[in-house]
């Protein structure tokens, strides 16, 4: 019960901060990924290529949105807490680092739910023929957020300066989408990159979101890969995030 209260408080502190940042959030979570959908369609010829490509672009934009909000945005907030001295307020409280991280995860999940719903609605308005299987989609979205938040938290805990950390989270947030077969297939990449990038979490996420948007349920392999990556990144983040210095 105490732990739940701690997590809720950390969540509410972040949520209260969102009041004045709703605009930038919409920009990062909805407007920018929507623009990427249009851009990919214009460059890739979505109209001509048909429904499957449009589904790929919508799935790509959902993953892009999750990446921007989970790695770039959440990572930025964690860096801000660390380098502006706010983290000291938590570190000197009888609060475990895991409550702090889980509070952030709750906030990221709320953001992810909001942005995914918004992008699905926009996709529908744009005529994307999505017949989303909600349970697999929700599972994949949650696992993707956990996995990417773990990466953001690792960067935030390891960065030597705010500038270094924010550059890293920005580069990771966008790089993990554009270097993975998210908007385009691995065949469009150099062979070595295609071979490597198919193991990136964003590649598993995009594949699973595509399957779920098409009404499929066979996302178990990708879900397992995402769950394993999430476990590894979050465990590393918790290990690196120490209240006490040596």
């Amino acid at each position: 019960m105490r732990r739940l209260n701690e997590i809720t408080c950390v969540f509410r502190i972040q949520l209260a901060g969102m009041r004045s940042e709703a605009g930038p959030f919409l920009l990062a979570a909805v407007v920018f990924p929507s623009a990427m959908y249009l851009f990919a369609g214009a460059v890739g010829g979505a109209g001509a290529a048909g429904d499957e490509t449009r589904l790929r672009f919508l799935a790509g934009s959902i993953v892009f949105s999750l990446s921007l909000t989970s790695i770039s945005w959440l990572g930025y907030l964690m860096l801000e807490n660390r380098f502006t001295g706010r983290l000291k307020l938590f570190a000197t409280l009888p609060l475990s680092p895991s409550s702090y991280v889980f509070g952030f995860l709750g906030f990221a999940l709320a953001q992810g739910a909001l942005s995914t719903a918004a992008l699905l609605t926009l996709g529908r308005l744009a005529g994307v023929p999505a017949r989303a299987s909600l349970a697999p989609l929700a599972l994949v979205v949650v696992l993707t957020i956990l996995c990417l938040c773990g990466l953001g938290a690792v960067v935030a805990a390891r960065a030597r300066s705010f500038t270094e950390g924010s550059l890293m989270t920005d580069a990771l947030g966008a790089g993990l989408v554009f270097l993975a077969p998210v908007y385009y297939g691995p065949e469009a990449m150099p062979a070595w990159l295609g071979a490597v990038s198919r193991f990136l979490p964003t590649a598993f996420a995009a594949s699973a979101v595509r399957t779920a948007l098409a009404g499929g349920h066979e996302v178990y392999g990708e879900a397992l890969a995402l769950a394993l990556t999430a476990t590894a990144t979050l465990a590393l983040a918790l290990r690196l995030l120490k209240w006490r210095e040596d």
Binding site: I13, A16, N81, G85, R86
Partner: peptide, 13 residues
């Protein structure tokens, strides 16, 4: 109860 020397506040609260 602790007041650290260089702690920051949550400006948006």
């Amino acid at each position: 109860g602790v007041t650290p020397q260089e702690a920051g506040v949550f400006e948006r609260l």
